[in-house]
């Protein structure tokens, strides 16, 4: 597996407590990836709502910075929810894996996220094991 120098993750979540926890989980998963010969550095951007996430992705697309490797997307957020943000990001032609992270895990919720353009869905809380599976699925570990 190719050795990558850096992994860029966008974390979209309105609750500070969840952002704090997700950041720790992502950092731990990145550490595990590094131990396995994967990434040895992690850039974690955070957005408090869907609109901020869309702007982040747009900025990354137009700047010289590398695009995101993974976007973790909450569902219920103020200003713009996760479904709409996912739709808009896909509308920009961005192919970065988007994984929905939500406490609403009913089949209809999952289908709505997938219909919006998400690649995968996982229920809250996001454990390091779940994230490890996600990284492996998208060849980020």
């Amino acid at each position: 597996m190719a050795h990558r120098k850096m992994m860029r993750v966008l974390l979209v979540e309105d609750e500070e407590i969840n952002r704090l926890e997700l950041a720790q989980v992502v950092a731990r998963a990145a550490l595990k990836a590094a131990a396995g010969g994967g990434d040895d550095d992690l850039v974690l951007d955070e957005a408090e709502n869907g609109a901020a996430a869309v702007q982040r992705v747009r900025d990354a697309a137009t700047a010289a910075a590398a695009p995101y490797d993974l976007i973790l997307m909450d569902k219920q957020m103020p200003v713009m929810d996760g479904h709409e943000a996912t739709r808009r990001i896909r509308g920009m032609g961005v192919t970065t894996p988007i994984v929905a992270v939500s406490s609403d895990g009913l089949p209809a919720d999952v289908e709505a996220f997938v219909a919006a353009g998400a690649d995968d869905f996982t229920s809250k809380p996001l454990s390091k094991e779940k994230l490890g599976d996600i990284l492996a699925k998208f060849r980020l570990a």
Binding site: V26, A30, L31, D41, V43, L44, D45, E46, E48
Partner: peptide, 13 residues
């Protein structure tokens, strides 16, 4: 407000 963190991965303790 967006936040940006750069996390250097540290070895396991």
């Amino acid at each position: 407000m967006n936040q940006h963190r750069r996390l250097a991965v540290r070895p396991l303790r």
